[in-house]
Amino acid sequence: MEKEAQPPGTVKGTTLCAAGPHTPSMRTTGTTVTEGCRAVRKGFRDQQRLLIVAVVAVLLCCTAGRGDGPMRGGGTVSAGSRGVLGVVSTAADGVEPLRTGLVEPAIALGWQVAVTLTPNAGQWLRANGELDRLEAVTGLPVRDTPRLPTEARPHPVANCYVVAPASANHVAKPATGIADNQALTQVSEALGTIGVPVVVFPQVNAAHVRHPAWDRHIAALRKADVEVIHGPDVWPLHEPREGPAVRQLPWTAITESIQHVTARAARHPL
């Protein structure tokens, strides 16, 4: 007697379910076990859904890296609606409350803040723990040294710069084109960058202002359209070592000047 021909995919009275080659659903002669096939197909659909969810999650993470997302320092970078504010500070009296006086209010106004310090200011704020706090609140590294050529740029491109407090040295050097540290490099470049407003608050005393070169320095900054914050109503000048022992910087006036120059730049784009 001839053996009955088995249909393709059937082994000894069973066939593989078409849903997949790895998990067979057994079919006996005259009886089809459909539950196994349904389970296999459902398993494949679940795997497809998981794969789609994983791909979407990766895409969301990549997108977050361009705007909002965790950064070095444990903070979260806020892709502020106003843009990126480059804050440059020097080793002058009053720099210690930079975070509470300027950085946090700017973030509350919608700015993404990137902080750069002169080497001495970096040493000061590192010693009192404020540098770490600045990194935590901004979500970006605080710069006080240049990067290596092989390193990525740690800060986004700034839409506006504020130099506060600016020592007399940090007023004179950018006014004469000197850029011998990271902070000065950023300020000097900003002075020549079209469409990037710059605000400078000189933290100086009466002796600094009487220096023969002072007026030329201020004139050079103003020629570059720098908003210089000064005057007896904002920062009364005292003789060296004769001013108040503790003196808060005019943070409100500085913040208002930032808002003023950026609004003006928006009204009159180049």
Rank of each mutant, 00 (worst) to 15 (best):
P8K: 13
S81I: 05
H260V: 10
R241V: 13
A220L: 04
A263P: 05
L125N: 03
L109K: 15
I52E: 15
R210H: 12
Q182D: 03
W235A: 07
V56L: 14
G69D: 08
R126W: 11
G177E: 02
A213I: 10
N169D: 11
V56A: 15
V103W: 09
V163W: 00
G9V: 12
D93P: 12
P244F: 06
A79H: 09
L148N: 07
Q203S: 15
F44W: 05
R153H: 09
L98W: 07
E4V: 14
V234L: 08
A207M: 11
A127Y: 13
A190S: 06
K42P: 00
I258T: 10
G129C: 05
T138Q: 05
R126Y: 12
R153F: 03
L140E: 00
D225A: 10
P240Q: 10
V142Q: 01
D68P: 05
Q48A: 15
T34A: 06
H170L: 01
G177Q: 07
V163N: 04
R264K: 10
V11Q: 12
P244E: 02
G43C: 06
A57E: 03
T15N: 01
A224G: 01
A213Q: 12
P232H: 10
R99T: 08
T185N: 05
K12M: 12
L102M: 08
A219K: 11
R147G: 00
V115T: 09
R66I: 12
K3T: 06
T193R: 03
G243Q: 01
I52M: 10
V200A: 06
A263N: 09
D46I: 15
R241E: 10
L102Y: 15
A253S: 11
T116F: 02
V53N: 12
R99N: 10
G195M: 07
V228L: 00
A183I: 00
T90C: 06
G36H: 09
A245P: 00
P149F: 03
A114K: 02
T31E: 08
V196G: 07
G139C: 08
G43T: 09
H208K: 01
R143V: 02
L109M: 09
S81A: 15
T32G: 07
M1Y: 14
